[in-house]
Amino acid sequence: MTTTATARRSPGDKHDERRNQLAESALRTLGELGYARASLREIATNSEFSHGVVHYYFRDKLELIVYCVRYYKARCVRRYDAVVADSTSADELVEAFAAKLVETLRDEAPMHRLWYDLRTQSMFEPGLREAVTHIDATLQEMIWRVVERYSDLAARPPALAPAAAYAVLDGLFQQALLALTRDGEAVLAGLPAQVRAVMPVLLVPPA
C-alpha cells in the first residue's frame, strides 16, 4: 500500500523543486550584480545549470527575478516571530529586534540590496509591480507584528498607522544597508542605538 511518506512526487512537485533550486542559485548572482546587470546567460554562467535549463524553466529574466524574490521573501516574512513571541518586556523586544536587524544585514546584505533595487525598478518596469507590491505588503505586516507587540509590552498605543511605522523602520534599515555597503560592518555597531531611539517614537507619548 502506498503511504504519504513513500508516494512518488508529482511532475508538478518536481518542476517546483527544480525552479526553487534555480532560484537559490540565481539569487547569489542577482545579489552580486543587481537587476540591470544580470542576464539569464550570466546567471547560468555563475551556476551549475546551463543557459538552456534556466531558459526552460523561466521564459525571461523578469520571470526568474520575480520568482527568486518571492521565493526569498517567503522565507523572510517570519524573521521576527521569535522576537515577538519571546520578548517579555518592551526593552527586551527592542534589544532583540535590533540584534535581528544587525544579523540579517550582516548575513544577507546582497539579498537586501537586490530587494531595494527591484523595488526601485518597479516604478519603471510594470512587470515587477504586482510582485513588489505583494512582497512589500507582507513585509509591512511582519514589521507591524513587532510594533503591536512592543505597544502591548509598553502599555502605550501605536502613534502611527502600519504603513507609516513600516516606512520609518524600513527607512532606518535601508540607511543602515547603504552605510554597510559604503563603510563595512563596523557601522552596524551603531544600529542598536538608532533602534532604541526610533522605537518609542512609534508609540503615543506617556501621559
Rank of each mutant, 00 (worst) to 15 (best):
E95V: 08
P11A: 12
A90F: 03
A193G: 12
R18S: 03
T88E: 10
G34H: 02
H112M: 10
A176P: 00
L105Y: 02
L22D: 00
Y72R: 02
Y57K: 11
E24Y: 05
S87N: 05
A85I: 13
A155D: 13
R113C: 11
G31C: 13
P158T: 05
G171E: 10
E48N: 11
G184K: 10
L177V: 13
E63W: 07
R78Y: 14
P158N: 13
A74M: 12
E130Q: 07
D60V: 07
Q121V: 10
Q174F: 12
Y67P: 02
E185V: 15
P158A: 11
S47L: 14
A165W: 00
H51Q: 11
L153N: 04
E130G: 09
E108I: 05
L178W: 08
Y150S: 02
W144N: 02
M1T: 09
D91S: 13
V66D: 01
M111H: 05
T3H: 04
L202F: 06
Y72S: 04
V132G: 00
R106G: 06
L178P: 01
Y72I: 05
V201T: 07
K100F: 09
A96H: 13
D170V: 05
P11M: 12
A109W: 03
V69Q: 01
L22I: 15
A164Q: 14
A159W: 06
S89V: 07
V53W: 02
S87K: 03
V66E: 01
A23G: 08
Y166I: 04
D86R: 12
S39N: 13
H15L: 14
L178Q: 13
R59T: 13
V77N: 04
A38Q: 01
L191F: 04
A99C: 10
V94P: 00
A82V: 12
P200C: 07
A85Y: 15
T29S: 07
K61W: 05
V84Y: 00
A7P: 03
L62Q: 11
Q194H: 10
A137G: 12
T88F: 10
L177A: 05
R75S: 09
V54Y: 00
L62C: 09
R79E: 06
V204F: 04
S50V: 12
N20F: 09
Y35D: 02
P162H: 07
M111R: 07
E141L: 11
L93A: 02
A82Y: 06
R78I: 06
L64Y: 01
Y71T: 01
L177D: 02
D152G: 04
R37L: 11
R119F: 09
P206I: 14
T120C: 08
Q21H: 10
D117F: 03
R59H: 12
A193M: 08
N20M: 15
V83C: 04
Y166C: 05
R145M: 12
D13W: 05
R70H: 15
H134M: 09
V132H: 02
L93S: 00
L64V: 04
L169Q: 02
D16L: 11
N20R: 11
T138D: 05
P200L: 15
R145P: 00
G190T: 15
D81N: 15
A96C: 12
R106S: 15
R8V: 12
A159Q: 05
E95Q: 06
V69E: 00
E125Q: 14
L202T: 01
D60M: 09
L203G: 03
A154K: 00
G31K: 06
A193Q: 15
L114F: 08
A5E: 06
S10T: 15
L180V: 08
R75I: 08
V204A: 13
